[in-house]
Design a protein around this nucleic acid. Sequence first.
DNA 1: CGTCGCATGTAACCAGTTACATGATTAA
DNA 2: TTAATCATGTAACTGGTTACATGCGACG
Lengths: 185, 185
Amino acid sequence: MDVKTTCLGVLVMGNATGYEIRKAFEYGPFAHFADGGFGSIYPAIAKAESPGMVTCKKHKQQKRPAKKIYAITDMGREHLFSTLKKDPGEDKFRSNFLFALYYADALPAEWIDEIITKRIADYKQKIECLVNINNQYCDDKNIAPTLIRHKGIEYYKAMLGIISNKKDKFIAAAIDNRNNNIKQP
Amino acid sequence: MDVKTTCLGVLVMGNATGYEIRKAFEYGPFAHFADGGFGSIYPAIAKAESPGMVTCKKHKQQKRPAKKIYAITDMGREHLFSTLKKDPGEDKFRSNFLFALYYADALPAEWIDEIITKRIADYKQKIECLVNINNQYCDDKNIAPTLIRHKGIEYYKAMLGIISNKKDKFIAAAIDNRNNNIKQP
DNA sequence: CGTCGCATGTAACCAGTTACATGATTAA
DNA sequence: TTAATCATGTAACTGGTTACATGCGACG
């Protein structure tokens, strides 16, 4: 799913500026499975505007760049939903954290302790963030967004549980092998 | 984590060819959180070879390109482990599947049913794959790989449980809104 | 007779990240 | 006074994907 399409996904829920779209990616209910920074969002909206998938109204402000409020068009809606009806393909999960833990046996126990402790705190914060999301992205008429939000919460809780349970074992693995090195080929 | 480093991560567990490295990314115990196709692996190994992070021995074969068996060097090990001691940063999870489900209210119920049913089958297969991994990547001396493998299994089981529980609700959301459309701004 | 597995690689392409460019207002 | 929020955007870079190029052997 390219950034243009995810932007349309935000705009279908209500008009927004580029800045607000980015906030939706960062704090919105699908923050944990879609993203986009300024450097990709602004060009993406421009790419959506030229064929007419979105329209733009400028609101002048004092001492700031004019707000550009984008609205999705029928063409934009069609593009979004036809994309959504295509095979979603596999999820992509990339984790340097797990990659590092994989080699816990060859890393200092303090480091393993540190990254796991930090990650546990991160997960707790993510859960809180998803729990506290207000309704600006969730219309009552639409049930799915709420379900997805709950799914996100359950996902992080599952991650939290797994990591918390195994924390001591990982640290022990690192301690046990403090003076060994990883298997030499 | 760039492909060069993940390749070193495979090689630290034993010598391998480019082809075998790719298999490790696809079926190995960290297949669910790291990756790389041929188009990225071959150039990555070449980039690791020139400064001396890996060495290469050619084994001629009949009627096939010579096998190039790579071995990690001390420099390669150092590069790997020093990278592993850096802040792993956030995990990246991108899911077109969840993105589509988010708009279930505006999509055909049959489609939602189809993608959820398929995803449940996918998760079951992933679990089986991780359960059946043999020890070629898991040395008994090293505990962490096994822990990570179990973590992968628990992760997919959690995903499976969440999706299975909510399946009917998502389909109902799609059915209920069959003649409505998503909120118009 | 087709497709999967083995086995290497290159080149064009594309999408997204990072850094740059600008700058007032407000809360800690 | 420092950092965060608001608000837009461009340009260079980087890194990975896709398609191309080659081709035999085994299995069904």
